[in-house]
Design a binder for these strands. Structure first.
Ligand SMILES: [Zn+2]
Ligand SMILES: [Zn+2]
Ligand SMILES: [Zn+2]
Ligand SMILES: [Zn+2]
Lengths: 153, 153
DNA sequence: CTCGTAACGTTATACTGTAACATCATTACA
DNA sequence: TGTAATGATGTTACAGTATAACGTTACGAG
């Protein structure tokens, strides 16, 4: 699973952040911008306390609420997703639209790939409908082994 | 979302546990049996430390490793699922077969319904195939509001 | 019997996340 | 310009979740 983030992807992520914030009337402050950069640069899911360590080097507060609040903001803007199975955070690969995505996370290398799969969404929506269940916007997590790690065995 | 577990469901869960253990050559010890009972009786996702409190009343050790080890065992037997989004555990609704399930969890009442949806599994398997990704057996979590809680708004 | 393994107990600690309140900056408006 | 409201961040303290490491007990195989 590819884990590098290209410079173009990082620029696109930050541009999406500017758009998302101006649309919602929120501010992309230096702290928020920096955290998003860190998540983009990681190129794979990264833990909150790891991000916190980087923030210290940049002169921001390194107390837990700093990073959790900021990540919450970025999630609300649809710029970052939380991966519950590993308590990590990853940059959204399609931050330009509201989506219901599917994220494949490799147990070996920690890499992640996000897809938007209309068919899956439709099928799950159908099940939800039968249950009278109202889904919230989210990404589903699929765990396993990526191609590279599988080949390396 | 219905949260009661019927006596029949509890019996079925324990019977499935007997079968799963005899098939895998493991033992369904009093502790394991008791934890499974507790999860079945809860009828909805329940936290590890809640289970631990109940164990104390039964004379078992109430140190964290007790419950985490036991839950890990029950998960390996396919009798219990872990819901990552809420750090809780719930009894499997179809413990008789290996499955790739879909679990709908209500944010309001905490209830959960587990489905096995062949179409969803097939679609996700297809995506995984394109990525060269080998999925592990699991359940996907869908968060939202159940019918009852939605109606109560 | 005794040896090896599985199961369980025990202690300590690591990791993850939030409550509550203080401080500072920005905006809005009298 | 004062001042009040709001949003963002800082700070302290703590709650909740999970595992490492090691000791002890139970029990069947040889
Ligand atoms: Zn996304
Ligand atoms: Zn991998
Ligand atoms: Zn199940
Ligand atoms: Zn509900």
């Amino acid at each position: 699973m590819r884990q590098k983030t290209t410079a173009a992807e990082r620029r696109a992520g930050l541009a999406a952040a500017e758009r998302a914030c101006s649309r919602s009337g929120k501010k992309l402050t230096p702290l928020r911008r920096r955290v998003l950069e860190l998540v983009l640069n990681a190129g794979k899911p990264v833990g909150a306390y790891n991000l916190l360590k980087s923030l210290r080097a940049d002169g921001f507060s390194d107390a837990p609420p700093t990073i959790y609040r900021t990540l919450e903001f970025l999630q609300a803007q649809g710029l970052v997703h939380r991966i519950a199975k590993s308590n990590t955070f990853v940059a959204c690969s399609r931050p330009h639209d509201d989506h219901f995505g599917l994220i494949f996370v490799c147990r070996q290398c920690g890499g992640a790939v996000e897809l938007e799969e209309q068919q899956v969404i439709a099928d799950i929506g159908c099940c939800a409908g039968r249950l009278g269940f109202q889904m919230s916007r989210q990404v589903l997590e699929v765990e396993g082994t990526c191609r590279d790690c599988g080949a390396a065995l």
